[in-house]
Design a protein around this nucleic acid. Structure first.
Length: 595
DNA sequence: ATGTGGGGCGCG
DNA sequence: AAAGCGCGCCCCACAT
């Protein structure tokens, strides 16, 4: 059920008060209360409620997604001693129900009484029979109120005198929930997708569309060449054992069919085989079948799974939304009279690390320029590529190759930043939990991990058992090392998207904008895609420059929310165009004027 | 026939 | 000897 809760005023320290409780049969005019900034909705699942509101053209300004925030606060070490964390698992620990299909097709129980039909208010039982499955299983009003109180208590109890912990948790909880709103809105609006352009890309690379179940001509031709070159007339190029056998028969000592291994081989079958694999991937993952299934009325509407990744990144479900290949981004096209604003945070993870660690020298290297170029200018390494691979190695725990050879110089130049990830790695190796800046905590290693460690301590443990334990220890260290940075970067991104979402709505409407955009975004700039450190806004053409400014301002605001006055910048590559690929091609690096 | 797991590869 | 993090989805091989 929905609980609409007033938020405290900026100067009002009073606890939040419930101002309305909204059940499924409530009239829309009351539900619309939640569109006002002074109101924050608290509900168990944004995925259960919000698609119906959006289908009715209603945008919610703020919310608390109690199931998402419950998970955060149950796991966070900052709230570990709270009743919320120590109690038995309950309804909010269950997975959320599958979301409803996007779009206006399904009847919305919420708004059956919308058209001034006072009679339905007197017969709420009439509509209760129509409560859809994804709503029926969501916790009821009393459960939501109790959960809200428990979460408030947990966050309040996390505060130690003079500590910023509670404030950070509040930011995390708000950001996660704002992300849930943005994710539902992006699915509702959809990513504008030109099926004809997509089809042209497919035809140019694969040849004309084949009958269902057969290979496109471009792939068939390559398969034939591979069979000829390997003298294997019945070879199935999709069968790994088949290909491996055939390659070995012609004297190629391969252990796998991975691209990087094949690429080093000198044999006339290799080039067509690699090309076949490329086309096969395109055809099977994003071919005509994908187009038929996922692009409806010129929009791609994937499901974003907020908090779907342990680190707090979003996941996705259906259509491979976070893996759209670069070659197909040309099919992402603005509606006529509209533009795409594409923004990409430059070197996000190292910047986040510099901010977390208060590494002023690293922050200075990234001030007003490409961070890796700044590292070169500071004389730490001789070229940009080394700065990049070295930094990625520090973030991921690389121990080999160029990355490892540059590492000592980074350790020396940036002791605070590198020290932070080294310490996170050591904590993980000890089996401890680590946390992001805002308080999202890593999972504990599982029972199998602990068992392997325990077995290796046995005096009779075999060498194999001991080396397995060491390998696994290091692997968990690499996970926790990366967790703190990837997770805090995800928090920056949540703040970025939340700030931008507000700014976009505040821009208002272009009454003259044509197009097929759904309410409540008709004539309005709106988010249509989000990919970890990159986002896309679809907007009426006259808004494009203002949107580009807003995206940059939101990035700066996100940096301040996380890092306060610490001088770490978050510049963006921002491009404006009618197609996703050309917007990225023509992007320029932008940042707020330094102050 | 249906489910599971691994290899492989797309994205950041 | 081990070998840089996090995902989703496809196909095939293999189990049931």
């Amino acid at each position: 059920m929905i609980v609409v809760v007033a938020r405290p005023g900026a100067r009002d320290p009073e606890p939040r008060a419930v101002v309305a409780v909204v059940a499924p049969e409530v009239p829309a005019r009351d539900a619309v209360l939640g569109t006002e900034r002074a109101v924050r909705w608290a509900w168990a699942d944004t995925t259960a409620w919000y698609p119906r509101l959006l289908a009715d053209g209603v945008r919610v300004e703020r919310c608390l997604d109690l199931r998402l925030t419950h998970r955060l606060l149950r796991a966070s070490v900052a709230t570990a001693s709270s009743a919320l964390a120590t109690g038995a698992a309950g309804a909010f620990d269950e997975p959320a129900a599958a979301p409803a299909e996007p779009g206006p097709a399904a009847p919305t129980t919420l708004f059956e009484a919308t058209d001034g039909d006072a009679a339905s208010d007197e017969h709420p039982g009439d509509s209760s029979a129509a409560v859809p499955a994804e709503l029926a299983r969501t916790p009821d009003v009393d459960a939501c109120l109790a959960e809200l109180a428990a979460q408030d208590a947990a966050v309040a109890g996390s505060a130690i005198a003079g500590s910023a912990v509670a404030g950070r948790l509040r930011l995390l909880v708000a950001g996660e929930s704002a992300g849930a709103l943005a994710a539902a809105e992006m699915r509702h609006a959809g990513l504008p997708w030109d099926a004809d352009v997509h089809d042209e890309v497919l035809c140019s690379r694969l040849g004309p569309r084949p009958a269902r179940g057969s290979r496109p001509p471009g792939m068939e031709r390559l398969a034939a060449r591979v069979r000829t070159e390997l003298d294997a007339p019945t070879l199935n190029p999709d069968s790994l054992p088949d290909v491996l056998r055939a390659l070995r028969r012609v004297g190629l000592p391969v252990s796998s069919t991975r691209q990087w291994e094949l690429a080093n081989l000198d044999h006339p079958a290799i080039a067509p085989l690699l090309e076949y694999k490329k086309l096969s991937r395109l055809h099977s993952a994003n071919g005509w079948a994908w187009l038929d299934e996922w692009v409806v009325d010129g929009r791609f509407r994937p499901e974003y799974v907020v908090g779907g990744v342990v680190t707090g990144r979003w996941g996705s479900s259906g259509g491979g939304a976070l893996q759209i290949p670069r070659t197909l981004r040309t099919a992402v096209r603005a509606d006529p009279g509209w533009r795409l604003v594409v923004a990409d945070a430059a070197q996000l993870e190292p910047r986040v690390l510099a901010g977390m660690a208060h590494d002023e020298r690293m922050a200075a290297a990234g001030a007003g320029r490409d961070l890796y170029a700044g590292i070169v200018e500071a004389g730490v390494v001789p070229e940009r590529a080394l700065a990049k691979v070295g930094m990625l190695g520090a973030l991921y725990g690389g121990t080999t190759g160029a990355s490892a050879s540059v590492l000592p110089r980074l350790l020396q130049a940036f002791p605070r930043a590198t020290g932070l990830v080294e310490e996170a790695a050591r904590a993980g190796q000890r089996g401890e939990i680590v946390s992001t800046l805002l308080g999202r905590s890593s999972p504990r290693p599982g029972a199998a991990w602990l068992q392997v460690q325990a077995d290796a301590l046995d005096p009779d443990a075999s060498d194999g058992a001991q080396s397995q334990a060491r390998a696994q220890t290091r692997a968990w260290g690499r996970f926790t090392r990366n967790f703190v940075v990837q997770g805090t970067a995800a928090e920056w991104a949540l703040c970025w998207i939340a700030e931008l979402r507000r700014r976009l709505w505040a821009m208002g409407v272009d009454e003259d904008a044509p197009g097929a955009v759904r309410a409540p975004f008709v004539g309005r700039p709106h988010l249509v895609y989000f990919l970890h450190d990159e986002l896309v806004v679809h907007c009426p053409a006259p808004f494009a420059e203002a949107v580009a400014d807003a995206v940059v301002e939101a990035a700066t605001a996100a940096g301040r929310l996380l890092f306060g006055s610490f001088p770490i910048e978050f510049p963006l590559a921002v491009g404006v165009a009618t197609a996703y690929d050309t917007a990225k091609d023509t992007a320029t690096l932008r940042r707020d004027a330094p102050r």
